[in-house]
């Protein structure tokens, strides 16, 4: 039997393509993320020039200030320079890790941000991991027995949680558990001695904020997983798997779920911005000393340099997360590798 020209024709490009296109794909994604980062930096600067009036007025509104003092302050903050010069200085500063100085605390913004990173990572990390596990598990179970009792209750609960402002849920939990859990901060005023006890103390404080964040985000994950598994369930290859004699749970575990997991994963990463937004309100409710609380405080001020710094950092981290998701997706899904 002769191999037809078409057969060779179709097989050829696949083998030739893979090498060069990986580089192109990665370069494209990284380039896109860099453009977004530049956008964020520029937006961070120009947004704060939109303020009607003089930033110094906002800054000094509670304290009577003399004209010489004002002039001095203006010079110290570089506000007497032309806008483009200010922008260049700002970008130059960012590159060197200089985010300016807080109006309210007279401290470098970079320093204030740095000390808030760890608590936020602890809170967001714990809540996200738990939410992914819970959401995916519930989503799979609900989809597989679609329309059943479990599906209806779980979907109902998820929809109700999805319809809730996060901070309100936090406030409710605070009122409901009044006195059982600490209401503010990450550690007790007088922290206990020893690492184990300290860790326990932090865990104790972490419980409520983590629960709040978890409840709000798992609902999304569950709904996404449920609908993407439902989407897969009509697929022909599942019929093939059944025809091969696979047990129902094997068909689900080996064929349906891995396929449904791929789109779900991208969506989870895409919704990282939502998690960040959630962090701001949850940290504000529980006075958790992270970046969210810093955002809240600088909004209330308003402490514009801090706000500017936090904005760039939060938006930047979301962009980086998305880049990671894009690159990971290519590793995990063989179809993306080829197209």
């Amino acid at each position: 039997m002769t191999t037809s020209p078409t057969e060779q024709h179709a097989a050829d490009p696949d083998e030739r393509r893979s090498g060069t296109s990986t580089v192109r794909y990665v370069a494209g994604k990284v380039g896109g993320a860099l453009v977004s980062l530049v956008f964020v930096v520029a937006l961070g600067f120009f947004l704060f020039r939109m303020i009607p009036g003089d930033p110094l007025v906002t800054m000094t509104r509670e304290r009577p200030t003399g004209p010489e003092q004002l002039a001095h302050l203006r010079e110290r903050l570089g506000l007497d320079q032309p806008v483009w010069q200010q922008f260049l200085d700002y970008v130059g500063g960012l590159v060197q890790g200089d985010f300016g100085t807080s109006y309210m605390h007279r401290r470098p913004v970079a320093e204030m941000i740095a000390e808030r990173v760890a608590p936020t990572l602890l809170l967001v990390g714990t809540a996200t991991v738990l939410a992914v596990l819970l959401g995916l598990w519930l989503g799979v179970r609900a989809a597989w027995r679609r329309g059943g009792m479990f599906d209806r209750t779980q979907t109902g609960i998820a929809l109700a949680l999805w319809s809730m402002p996060q901070f309100w849920l936090g406030l409710l939990l605070l009122i409901a558990t009044q006195g059982v859990f600490p209401s503010r901060g990450m550690t007790s005023v007088d922290p206990p001695d020893g690492f184990a006890l300290q860790a326990l103390d932090v865990g104790w404080h972490l419980t409520l904020p983590c629960l709040t964040l978890l409840l709000v985000i798992y609902a999304q994950y569950m709904l996404v997983m449920r609908s993407s598994l439902l989407e897969e369930m009509g697929a022909d290859y599942l019929r093939t798997a059944r025809a091969k004699g696979l047990r129902d749970d094997l068909v689900r575990r080996r064929h349906a779920v891995p396929n449904a997991l791929l789109p779900t994963m991208t969506l989870i990463f895409l919704q990282f911005g939502m998690v960040v937004s959630g962090t701001v309100t949850v940290e504000a409710v529980f006075s958790w000393p992270g970046l969210g609380l810093l955002t809240y405080e600088s909004l209330r001020g308003p402490d514009l340099p801090v706000l500017q710094g936090v904005f760039v950092i939060l938006a930047g981290s979301v962009i980086v997360m998305n880049l990671v998701a894009d690159l990971l997706y290519r590793v995990v899904d063989p179809r993306v590798r080829a197209s």
Binding site: Y237, T240, H255
Partner: peptide
């Protein structure tokens, strides 16, 4: 329709 009858990611 072999395209759909095969699992695309295995």
């Amino acid at each position: 329709g072999a395209m759909h009858a095969l699992n695309p990611v295995r």
